[in-house]
Design a protein around this nucleic acid. Sequence first.
DNA 1: GGGGTACTCGTTTTT
DNA 2: CGAGTACCCC
Length: 825
Amino acid sequence: MSNGFDDIPFFDEEPAPRKPAASPAPAPSAPAGGGLGIAARAMAARDQARAPDYLSGLNPEQREAVETVDGPVLVLAGAGTGKTRVLTTRIAHILATNRAYPSQILAVTFTNKAAREMKERVGHLVGGAVEGMPWMGTFHSIGVKLLRRHAELVGLTSAFTILDTDDVVRLIKQIIQAEGLDDKRWPAKQFAQMIDGWKNKGLDAAQIPEGDARAFANGKGRELYAAYQARLKTLNACDFGDLLLHPIRMFKANPDVLKEYHQRFKYVLVDEYQDTNTAQYMWLRLLAQRPPGVPQNVCCVGDDDQSIYGWRGAEVDNILRFEKDFPGAKVIKLERNYRSTEHILGAAGFLIAHNEGRLGKTLFTDRVDPNDDKVVVHAAWDSEEEARAVGEEIEQLQRNQHPLNNMAILVRASFQMREFEDRFVTLGLNYRVIGGPRFYERLEIRDAMAYFRMVCQPADDLAFERIVNTPKRGLGDTTIRNLHDYARARDIPMLAAATDIIETDELKPKARKALFDVVTDFRRWQSLLENTPHTELAEQILDESGYTAMWQNDKSAEAPGRLENLKELIRSMEAFESLRSFLEHVSLVMDAETNENLDAVSIMTLHSAKGLEFETVFLPGWEEGLFPHQRALDEGGRSGLEEERRLAYVGITRAKRRCHIWFVSNRRIHGLWQSTLPSRFLEELPPAHVEVAESETSYGGYGRNPYGQSRFDKQEPFQNSYSTPGWKRAQANKTDATRDNWGNRSGHSVERIGYGESGPRAKTIEGELVAKSTSNEPSRFSVGDRVFHMKFGNGNVSSIEGNKLTIDFDRAGQKRVLDGFVEKA
DNA sequence: GGGGTACTCGTTTTT
DNA sequence: CGAGTACCCC
């Protein structure tokens, strides 16, 4: 796809007044407010010692990444190499050397958790809380901040509402119905995802590809998208995508505003750069690029090997093309790992080397201990036995004084969790599930929030529709539809329509009375908004509306929990100054907190494990079809497989000391039992760092595998296993990436899985960077060496290109192979 | 408006 | 198989 960035206005027209970006004197444009305290403290910290404290303990690469503050920098930080430390120290360094005020640093993360952590750690380094860093946050929260200031430039008012996915789906459903379409044939949820995808790519209705537009509702895709945007505008609302797109539009259309921010942001930092999508990339480029001659003090930190969000729009290309976007960029690799044993790193490194499109890093550690466990692969008969055996392993560790908090089970898909939960409940083993529905996604929280939204923003129709009949007030579908039509016909919000309609004879007396009560309630609450403490008002709203009573009268099992959640909602409100600021916080930031005091095993998906670490990690479900997931293969082709492999890499690298991988022979899928084959990823682990566990239970896999032997059935593991069914089936489905470890462009034609129109991404760029990043490192092989390859057998090295060897194999002929796959014979 | 039944669908998830 | 939804009938 031609990247739609070329229309981003650049700075050619600007005279490039060389602002002293790195000047020691802070620019006078720094806004007042809190920042000075930190700067002052930072300076004090600096003055205390010549070589500042915060720099000691960094390794040379980390230190370089911290101290290279002028000009663009890309830090390729492998798992466990101290990425966050570099980012936070870099900020501290900028502050301590007086290069900028805290308010002149733009620091972007993906999650609120990461932002929070970063604030905390910078605060710790500089001494004290970081109140003066107003521009540290997620893409979305910074987007909101920008939009609230300049809402009118994109046709909103600064009081706009932020809709969550649920609101969006309901809204789209209304639009689909309004178009006279069958909302069952064309599910709103699906269209919401399509819109999300377009917005991730930075496309508005006019820009979406014709094919996409046709793909939905008999070619009405574009029309519906436009209608949706129009509706958002009348509602004065944004979806999550708009929080990025509106600022982009605004900056493009108002270069003077953009310039203002260029002057403000002297330093730009981005975390997890490999996860940025196209819209975020455009946003960043607008803010970070400077006219020629002006230093672009942008620092992106990321790891292409941990890019696991391609399916939701992340573009690894962004990290791969950094040097093109920011000419003269310095690229710093962090490869010294402080987290894991050499076996864990060896296993992970060997696995990930099977990927083609990477910048090429190899993690290493000095911490070598002969007592370290190898990565252990276990077989089980079925998922029940898998859960039982993992449970036993955990209890064993527990008996040896290992806290449960140091253990995690990382699954590919959340349905796998259930089996473990069931087992742990019977064992009485504490566990916590990470992920799941967030606090603010819960029904009762969303209902309560809808009430609050209505009070703060009477025009919020979605909120109105949500709670107008909750609790039940006898306002059924007919009444609502009536009201809806009335409002639409006059182009007024529904609450206003309700106010009008109760003066007419349009409704039946019963409905009229009920609606009258609702309108009166809201009027009263609105009048209290300014002068009543917001927590008090919130409680009052929930009580007087009958919402609390509704749950008190509910005798279902969840009702008490819901009431508890409502209390929690009110409690958490205390930290905010107004109902309004609280609303914003909840829509963007609020998440359920975990009970840190409980010692428990964590259960989560591999995706949510990114960024975490545990002494012991269990990785169940390594079977073809589940991991790599069949759908990733079907829809993503080779790049889909590579993303799955990165996910496996993320999983293994979460482990500090012990990593146990499991696969089963039988798993229930869609209700019926299916025989499964070991994941191809198992075959991609290096024998030197992996051992295969003996059967530890009566149901153990040995001799029971209906597929005959695989290398995992044998006492002597890792013999050549390429005749196993797993391999054969993998062959049948395979892309060239795993086929011979290096794309084998000269080799046979290979059946491709669902390549589709998307095809492999940016091959040239990837290829170029791979070559570049490895060309200056001397190979450990020389031409003429006799080598052995797991699949091709013995051969002689005929030429070397970086880490890629051309080898004449005795039997298999000439192949190109990554040097990680051969050893000296 | 509630309750019961029929039907669909089945990776990963942040904001 | 089983959760979630949609729809229908009382």
